[in-house]
Design a protein around this nucleic acid. Structure first.
Length: 848
RNA sequence: GCCGGGGUGGCGGAAUAGGCAGACGCACGGGACUUAAAAUCCCGCGGUAGAAAUACCGUACCGGUUCAAUUCCGGUCCCCGGCACCA
């Protein structure tokens, strides 16, 4: 009886061995081609890893290990995104400094990551809350500040009453805080922003050059929200006899002849100036109501189009018509100019507003074919009517011509607007990278001199957050009080800290040169390793981390700090692992599965193989105990066959060796293809098929198990499965008598000693499978035709082949590519053309 | 509403680029081994009809192109994700 599959007996041993040997270190400036594979680094929470984390880390590790075997110099690093609220909240509740709890959590994370057999370069590990790291996060703040990309602004911000901090627009999901789900409220505060909007166009353009999922690209495009239109000013005669102008933004300047009113947002600065004295009370009441409503009804879908007349009129610059001006809360102040021209005939919202306030509806664009329906807005492009000299033009033509006209007449201009806002980066919390700014009564916001960085986060602080919109750091007099770097006058330090996303916006660069004390990184190291070749992480960061990182990268490139402007060449989003209740795994739901338990029961290799087998990398998958059992059975069968075969000392020969060799070659090609295409679930299936084949042929032909071909098949198998199941592979490899590690072996290539001689060809009659024949691999069409007509099931059909049309589907040898892309098939519609191809793969006989 | 993705057995899923639908695994049913159970091994497993051979139907639905469609085209329905009064 063979030895039991005792995985715990060798896992730790090999883990130590690999680390001592340093196999997984990325070698700076190696002559080998480099491959940088990165996973989104984890937040080291107190609850440790759950199996869902493996959904990301394990496939990435397979790629890293595969690439090493393919001769690449691989950089596969890991670190911790450690600044953030959970550690701080824990500190508040338990009085333990976040530094301590973070260190403890990381110790646990590191242990768990190692137990998963992940082949990280541990020499490059860092934590964003390390002084050595956040010094450079501060440095980057100043870098942006000096380039005019960081500024302070006092305005209404979204405040999370639970986290007691402001949030960036991207960090509000459906009106709630992205972290804790608490509804956010408006608060007027002076905050720090990064001018990401300056990069809107570059962020948009770069998306065309990177290999990212469409979903993420579309979310970013959506978020940036570029729209091209025109800005045009409407003149207003004010009650006092003076005049002013209200600029409006529109993407439909072709509808300007249909303007019947103007609407401005309640926040509009000209609101009171534009209101006649008899309307002041009413308008004031409306504006106050609107502000209140803004807090409550943010989410309501179809809000009523409320508003009220200001008492004043604006002049349509193209028609000189007088139109009433309204205030209406359906106008978004922060977009465009905060004022819109009301064209009820051609905009649904304006239509609803006009109906409610009994304003005229004037159609100036008619549909090209169908007749106009005057009971609703016609929002499509069409042909202009009643539009003076522009009548008869299509909307497209009219937009170009009217923009040209207003530019010539200096009434307005073509402009581009974005939905994206600047990134609000200050947080009123303790556990983050300090903002290295000193507020001097004379010189204003002054950056701390570079030589004095870092501004250290004080250890002894009263962490309690405040509702005032101040950071707990404001409690620490020693921290706050300082001198102005310019004039030396008593000044106050900035007490807000940076958004955690500031830390993660450049961490992928730091791995190239993680211990540099003189700079965030050395340019040569960056030029060697970056950009990241493959980045794997969750889709929840689509418009946060992934957008911010691209922004940082582009700024650095513009400053000449680095030589590329897109940090992540290829991006993949792993799906989530759902608990037994079909819900996302989380501690609060109580459906988490701890990898420690799984490893104890089944071993790391089984866990890894199951993670790969569970489904396509990008889709969500349900954790199932039955499922992992199936994979465990597979691992045990691998163990039994291989450990038994390891005892064979001398080989005999057998007639079936050729079959085994052909199968090995097929599988080598097939599995290589699957890894290259990240099809890990079918890759594991292929190993199962391969094992089933080996067990079956050995069952049928006792001697085959003792041949060289069989041993070679097992060695190819074990090498190729080693990225997925590194422990069992290493153990069996050594049992096969090898002294070196399996993880420094080369990836197998097909041997191509034998070619298949006979293949099975399916025979269809009128497109339906009726029989199969065995034929020589390069049999000609006539030969196959004869065999097909004689095939038992076909001949039993008594068909009249004289009128039959024979369609031979063949493989095309010309298109067999070098890179194991597999054999490709071409269907051939003309007999003439089919002469160019060899090797019939399918025959369809058409008889009518 | 707009954008993106999807719909295949009881379940997870497979089918590389139009060519054998359902690989592989789970669950289930039957059998072997066992005093018995677990473990392991063998057989079966889309639907309908049939004792069986086999036939017909079948990849959300309707239609089209093709010798051949899960795959391509047009339309419809449904599900998931994102954005949403953005002018």
């Amino acid at each position: 009886m063979e030895e039991k599959f005792n995985f715990l007996g060798f896992q730790d041993r090999w883990q130590k061995y690999w680390e001592e040997k340093g196999f997984y270190r990325g070698e700076d400036f190696s002559k080998k081609p480099k491959f940088y594979i990165l996973v989104m680094f984890p937040y080291p929470s107190g609850s440790g890893l759950h199996v869902g984390h493996g959904r990301n880390f394990i496939p990435a590790d397979v790629v890293a290990r595969y690439k090493r075997m393919k001769g690449f110099n691989v950089l596969h690093p890991i670190g911790y995104d450690a600044f953030g609220l959970p550690a701080e909240n824990y500190a508040i509740e338990n009085g333990i400094n976040p530094k301590i709890s973070t260190e403890n959590n990381i110790t646990n994370f590191r242990r768990q990551l190692k137990s998963l057999g992940l082949s990280y370069d541990w020499t490059r590990e860092f934590t964003t809350s390390d002084v050595e790291y956040y010094k450079w996060t501060e440095w980057f703040f100043e870098f942006l500040f000096k380039r005019g990309l960081a500024y302070q602004d006092r305005s209404f911000q979204w405040w999370c009453p639970h986290c007691k901090t402001v949030l960036a627009n991207e960090q509000i999901i459906d009106g709630n805080c992205w972290r804790c789900g608490t509804p956010v409220v408006r608060k007027e505060l002076k905050e720090w922003f990064f001018r990401i909007t300056d990069y809107a166009d570059k962020l948009l353009e770069g998306l065309d050059r990177i290999e990212w999922p469409d979903r993420i690209k579309s979310m970013q495009r959506n978020w940036i929200g570029k729209s091209e239109g025109a800005e045009i000013a409407f003149k207003v005669e004010l009650p006092g006899g003076t005049t002013c102008e209200i600029p409006v933004f529109t993407t439909r300047i072709d509808t300007i002849f249909g303007v019947t009113f103007l609407a401005i947002a309640p926040e509009h600065p000209l609101l009171h100036e534009l209101t006649t004295s008899d309307r002041k009370e009413e308008v004031g009441r409306y504006a106050t109501e609107a502000f209140k409503k803004a807090e409550m009804d943010r989410l309501s879908q179809d809000r009523e189009k409320t508003g009220t007349f200001l008492g004043t009129y604006a002049i349509n610059p193209l028609t000189q018509e007088r139109v009433p001006i309204f205030v209406g809360d359906y106008v978004v102040y922060s977009y465009g100019t905060g004022a819109v021209m009301g064209v009820p005939a051609h905009d649904e919202r304006d239509f609803a507003f006009a109906k409610k306030h009994e304003l005229p509806i004037k159609f100036v664009v008619k549909p090209v074919s169908a007749t106009a329906d005057t009971e609703k807005a016609f929002i499509d492009y069409g042909t202009l009517i009643d539009s003076k000299e522009f009548s008869g033009l299509t909307s497209e033509e009219a937009i170009t011509k009217i923009v040209a006209y207003i530019e010539k007449q200096e009434l307005g201009k073509g402009v581009v607007k974005y939905k994206m806002r600047d990134w609000l980066i200050s947080r009123q919390r303790y556990w983050g990278a300090p903002i290295p700014i000193v507020h001097c009564p004379e010189h204003g916001a002054v950056p701390v001199p570079e030589s004095e960085l870092p501004v250290l986060l004080p250890d002894e602080v009263d962490f309690s957050p405040r509702d005032t919109g101040e950071s707990p750091l404001a409690n620490d007099k020693n921290f706050v009080n300082t001198k102005c770097p310019i004039c030396g006058k008593p000044s106050k330090r900035e007490t807000d800290t940076q958004d955690g996303f500031a830390c993660s916006s450049w961490y992928f660069l730091r791995y190239a040169d993680p211990h540099n004390n003189d700079a965030p990184f050395d340019r040569a190291e960056i030029d060697y390793w970056l950009p990241v070749d493959l980045y794997i992480g969750g889709a929840e960061h689509a418009v946060m981390h992934l957008l911010y990182s691209r922004f940082y990268t582009k700024v650095m490139r513009d400053a000449g700090l680095i030589g590329f402007d897109e940090p992540f060449k290829k991006l993949m989003n792993q799906g989530m692992i759902l608990g037994a209740d079909h819900q996302k795994m989380s501690k609060s739901r109580g459906n988490v599965v701890n990898p420690d338990d799984i490893i104890q029961e089944y071993g790391t290799d089984t866990l890894r193989a199951y993670m790969l087998f569970i489904g396509p990398l990008e889709s969500d998958a349900l954790w199932s105990t039955e499922g992992i059992n199936g994979v465990f059975r597979f691992m045990k069968r691998v163990w039994n066959l291989f450990s038994e075969n390891a005892k064979i000392a001398s080989y005999i020969s057998s007639a079936e060796e050729k079959d085994v060799d052909i199968m090995t070659d097929k599988m080598v090609q097939h599995i290589t293809n699957q890894v290259e295409n990240f099809k890990f679930n079918t890759m594991i299936s292929s190993f199962m098929e391969w094992l089933n084949y080996l067990l079956k042929i050995r069952e049928e032909h006792q001697t085959i198990g003792r041949t060289k071909a069989f041993r070679e098949a097992l060695e190819a198998f074990i090498k190729m499965i080693s990225p997925a199941t590194p422990f069992i592979a290493e153990e069996l490899w050594h049992r096969f008598g090898h002294r070196d590690s399996i993880h420094v072996q080369s990836w197998p290539a097909p041997k191509n000693i034998y070619k298949e001689e006979v293949i099975t060809i399916p025979i269809q009659i009128n497109g339906k499978l009726r029989d199969r024949i065995e034929a020589p691999v390069d049999a000609g069409e006539d030969e196959i035709k004869e065999l097909a007509m004689k095939a038992s099931k076909i001949s039993a059909m008594n068909l009249d082949f004289s009128k039959a049309n024979f369609i031979f589907v063949k493989k095309n040898p010309l298109e067999k590519s070098e890179d194991y892309k597999g054999v490709r098939y071409a269907s051939t519609n003309s007999f003439k053309k089919s002469e160019d191809y060899k090797g019939v793969r399918l025959l369809n006989i058409v008889i009518h």
